[in-house]
Amino acid sequence: MAENVFVFGTLKRGFPLHDEGLSGARFIGPYRTKKRYPMLIAGPRIAPMMFNEPGSGLHVSGELYALDERALAKLDSIESVGKPGNFRILVEVEPLAGGPGTLAHAYMKSRSLADPIHSGLLDRYEDRRFTL
């Protein structure tokens, strides 16, 4: 069964982790979060982080993909799900071009991982300073 995943950072096309995590996934299109979430660049790896604080922050833009459970498990590993401060939740997303929304998995971080902070709140990730 296919699962929808909303990616907003280094898993997007053209960014460092895309081929590793989403090479076999089906691209659905550009989407954004229906609710506002805080997203910023932070941590020692200069990574994009979104926090599970719906209603604060901005509508975050990204990409929606459909993938199988095996690929989702691989993404969980890439995103360190299961380690403190790293988790996956369901969020509502809607197409940037308009139309009905859907639920999708999204990767969130704990604020405890956001040290140091490298940006203010962002609605899209375009930063290229991320390090592996």
Rank of each mutant, 00 (worst) to 15 (best):
D76A: 07
P100V: 07
G101H: 01
D76R: 12
P95M: 08
R124L: 12
S119G: 08
A104E: 05
K83E: 14
I89L: 02
S80V: 04
I117K: 11
R124F: 07
H118R: 09
R124I: 05
L96H: 07
E92I: 04
G120V: 15
G85C: 14
G101R: 01
P116S: 14
S112V: 10
E79I: 13
I89Y: 11
L75E: 08
E79L: 00
S77D: 00
V91L: 09
A73N: 06
I117F: 02
A73T: 08
P116F: 11
A97K: 10
A114D: 01
G85W: 09
P116D: 04
S80F: 02
K109S: 07
R88I: 04
G98F: 10
V93Q: 00
F87V: 00
G85K: 14
S110F: 10
I89T: 10
L122A: 10
A106H: 01
D76E: 12
M108W: 14
D76Y: 14
E94C: 04
R124T: 05
V81W: 02
L75P: 00
L90N: 07
D76T: 05
N86E: 06
G82K: 01
P116H: 03
N86Y: 14
E94H: 00
I89P: 11
K74H: 09
L103G: 11
D123A: 09
V93W: 02
L103H: 09
A73K: 13
P116T: 05
G99C: 12
E79Y: 15
P95N: 15
G85M: 04
E94K: 08
V93D: 00
P100N: 05
R111D: 05
K109D: 13
K83C: 07
K83D: 09
K109P: 11
A114L: 01
F87E: 04
M108H: 08
G101N: 03
L96T: 05
